[in-house]
Each structure stands twice: as structure tokens, then as C-alpha cells.
Computed example of a mutant assay.
Amino acid sequence: NEGKLMRMHTAVRLNSAIRIKSGSAALIIINFPAPPSKLAAEENYMEYLEALTEGLDRVLMVRGSGQEVVTIYS
């Protein structure tokens, strides 16, 4: 339970920082947090996402592959 509380506290703090820095932005793009591996944790995951995006008008969550690709032209 302490781990869940810490994650929610982190989501609330991050939401606050986003609202301060980008609250007036037309679109906020953030990294999509990885979903839980256990099916039982899905409810907490959705609560986490709600806390992360609360009060933000437009949020686009992007999930990458975790592997950076660098080319000679970048």
C-alpha cells in the first residue's frame, strides 16, 4: 500500500508541475506510463492516469519502444 501511495503522490506532484509550466498550452504531450503487468493493478493504474491529467484540457500520451534510433541525418 505504501508503494501505491507514493505513486499517487508522484502523479499529483507531476500534475502540479505540468499545470504550472504548461497549463495554458493548447496541447500537452507526455510519456504514457507503462501499464501494470498484473491485471489486478489496473484500477490503481487508471486512478494514477486520472491524477496525472486532472485539470488539463488536452493531453496526448505517447508510448515509445524504449529504444532510441539515431541516424546520420539527425
Rank of each mutant, 00 (worst) to 15 (best):
P35T: 07
L14T: 06
T53H: 01
F32L: 15
S16L: 11
A41M: 12
N15R: 08
L56M: 15
Y73C: 10
S74Y: 01
R7E: 00
R58Y: 00
Y73Q: 13
E42C: 13
M6L: 13
L27S: 07
F32E: 06
G55H: 02
T10E: 10
G66W: 04
L56G: 02
I30T: 06
S24G: 07
A41I: 02
V62T: 06
A34H: 05
L14Y: 01
L60E: 11
R58F: 00
S16K: 06
Y45R: 03
S65W: 03
M8Q: 10
Q67T: 08
P33C: 03
H9V: 08
G3L: 13
R7Q: 07
L27A: 07
Y73I: 14
A11I: 04
Y48T: 10
F32R: 11
E54I: 11
V69C: 07
A26S: 15
A17G: 05
I18L: 12
V70Y: 07
V70R: 08
Q67K: 12
E47M: 09
M6T: 07
R19E: 03
Y48I: 04
E47L: 14
M61F: 03
A41Y: 11
Y45Q: 00
G55Y: 02
H9E: 15
L39H: 11
E43R: 14
G23N: 02
N31E: 15
I72M: 09
L52N: 00
M61W: 01
L52A: 00
N31H: 11
E2C: 08
G23I: 07
A51D: 03
I72F: 07
S37V: 13
H9S: 14
A11T: 02
K38L: 14
M8W: 03
A41N: 12
V70G: 01
N15I: 05
I18Y: 00
E43I: 13
P33M: 00
L27D: 05
R7F: 04
N15Y: 02
T53K: 06
L56P: 03
V69G: 01
M46L: 15
P36G: 08
R19V: 01
I28V: 15
I20K: 14
A40K: 12
P35H: 10
R13Y: 04
L5P: 00
A41K: 10
P33A: 00
I29S: 06
S37K: 14
V59N: 01
E68T: 08
Y45K: 04
A25L: 07
